[in-house]
Nucleic acid binder design. Structure first.
Lengths: 222, 222
DNA sequence: ACCTGAACACCGTTCAAGT
DNA sequence: ACCTGAACACCGTTCAAGT
C-alpha cells in the first residue's frame, strides 16, 4: 500500500486510489445505485466532503472507477486456428468480460464510457478482423456491430425475466395472447426462458460472417 | 398540459388518467429522470401526495406510463411479399417504434417492462415467423434474438457518441491506439461514427436468416 | 495539504388532518 | 372521495473553517 510510504501520519492517510478502489468495490457488489458519496465516505470512515477533495464530483468518480477496473483486467488470450475462429474468440472475450463485471459494465454503459472499459479487448478484436481481411471502415462497422450485439444480449443475460415484476414478465404477458396466426404451442414456448448464451453465439456468428470475406464463410467456401 | 395553481383545498377534478398522461409527457420530453413525483405534481398544479393517492408510488406510475403509451400506439402494418420480407418488416416495426419513443423505451428497459410496451408488435413478428415456418421454441429463440439485437443497436443509435464526455468517445480513445497488427487507416476509420441504421439492417438480416428455414434464404435458395 | 460540519436544493414516501 | 401540509430519510454538492 502506498500509504505506508508516508512519513507524516497525522491525517487519515487517504489517497485518491483508496477512494476509487472502495468505490469500485461498492459498485461490483451492489451495482450503480450502491455508489453514493455518503455510503462511500462511510465505508472509508470519513466525511462526504473528503471524497470531493480527492476525486471531485460523482461523474469523475464513476469514470475513475471504470478506468481502474480497465487497468486491473487481465488481457484475455485469443484462441483459434482460423482467422474466423480467432475473431469469434476475441469477440467472446468482450462478452465474457462484461458478464464477469456486469455491474461496472452496466455503469459504463449508462454514462457512455463503455469504450474506456474495454478498449484493449476492442483493439484485440480489430486486430483479428485485420488478420481476417477486414480493414478500414469495414472493420469499424464490424466492430461496432459486434459491440452493439453484445450490449443487447447482455441485457437479456443479466435481466433473466425474474428481475421484472411478476405480471410484466415475458411469459406472463405472452400467456394472454390469442392470435389465429400463431399456434398454441408457439405461445406456450414463449413462457420458457431462452438459452441466452446459445442465442448470443448464433447471433455473433451470423454478424461476424456478414463482415468476413466470402472465403472465410464455411457455408459458401469452395 | 393541465397546469393550474390551486390555493383552495377543494377538488382538483383530477383523475388517474390525467396524472398518467402528464407523466407520459414528462418522460417523452425529458427522459426518465424528468419524471419526479414533485415535478409531476407541479405540472398538474397539485401537491405531491395527491399523485400518491391517484397512482400509488413511482414504480406503479412508471408501469402505468408504459402501459398507456402501449395502448396509444397505432398497430404498424407489416409489408412485404415473401415471408422473409414480412418478418423483416415486422422486426423493423419494433425498431422504428423504439426510435420514435426512445425515452419511454429506455424507461421500460430500465424497469424490465419492455414486453409490456411492445407486446402487440412482438405478436405480429411471431405471426410472421410462423408464416415463414418458424414455430415453437425456435420461434421464441428467433423473437428473443431479434429483440436483444434491437436493444443493443438502440443504445448505439440514441447515444451517438457525443452524449459521452469528450475524452471518452470512441474516436478519442481509439486515436491513441498503436498496434502493429492494425493498419493506421483502420485506426483512423474508428474515429468516424458508423451508420447505425445500416448496420442494424445488416445485423437483423443476418440473425433472421439464422432462424428461417433454408428455403427462405436467398443465398442458398435453389 | 487534508479533513470536518453545516447548509442548500433536491429526491421518494408516509401520516394525520382537512373538506 | 379527494386533497393538503408537515415530516422523515435519503440524495449530490458547496462553503467556510479547522489542522
Amino acid at each position: 500500500m502506498v500509504a505506508a510510504t508516508r512519513t507524516s501520519t497525522a491525517r487519515a492517510g487517504l489517497e485518491r486510489d483508496d477512494v476509487v478502489q472502495a468505490a469500485l468495490e461498492l459498485v461490483e457488489e451492489g451495482g450503480a445505485e450502491a455508489l453514493t458519496m455518503r455510503k462511500l465516505a462511510a465505508a472509508l470512515g470519513v466525511t462526504t466532503t473528503t471524497i470531493y477533495w480527492h476525486v471531485g464530483h460523482r461523474d469523475e468518480l464513476v469514470i475513475a472507477v471504470i478506468d481502474r477496473l480497465a487497468r486491473q483486467l487481465a488481457q484475455a488470450p485469443v484462441v483459434g486456428r482460423t482467422p474466423r475462429d480467432r475473431v469469434l474468440s476475441a469477440a467472446r472475450n468482450i462478452w465474457t468480460n462484461a458478464l464477469a463485471h456486469r455491474n461496472v459494465t452496466a455503469l459504463a454503459s449508462q454514462v457512455g464510457a463503455t469504450t474506456l472499459l474495454e478498449l484493449p479487448l476492442e483493439v484485440a478484436l480489430v486486430a483479428e478482423f485485420e488478420a481476417a481481411g477486414v480493414r478500414g471502415p469495414a472493420a469499424r462497422d464490424a466492430l461496432r456491430s459486434v459491440l452493439m450485439c453484445i450490449a443487447g444480449f447482455l441485457i437479456g443475460a443479466w435481466r433473466p425475466d425474474d428481475a421484472s415484476p411478476a405480471p410484466l414478465r415475458h411469459g406472463a404477458l405472452w400467456s394472454t395472447v390469442e392470435d389465429p396466426a400463431i399456434a398454441p404451442a408457439t405461445v406456450e414456448a414463449m413462457a420458457e426462458p431462452p438459452d441466452v448464451e446459445r442465442l448470443f453465439t448464433l447471433a455473433l456468428v451470423a454478424i461476424v460472417d456478414t463482415y468476413l470475406p466470402a472465403a472465410a464463410h464455411p457455408e459458401t467456401a469452395p
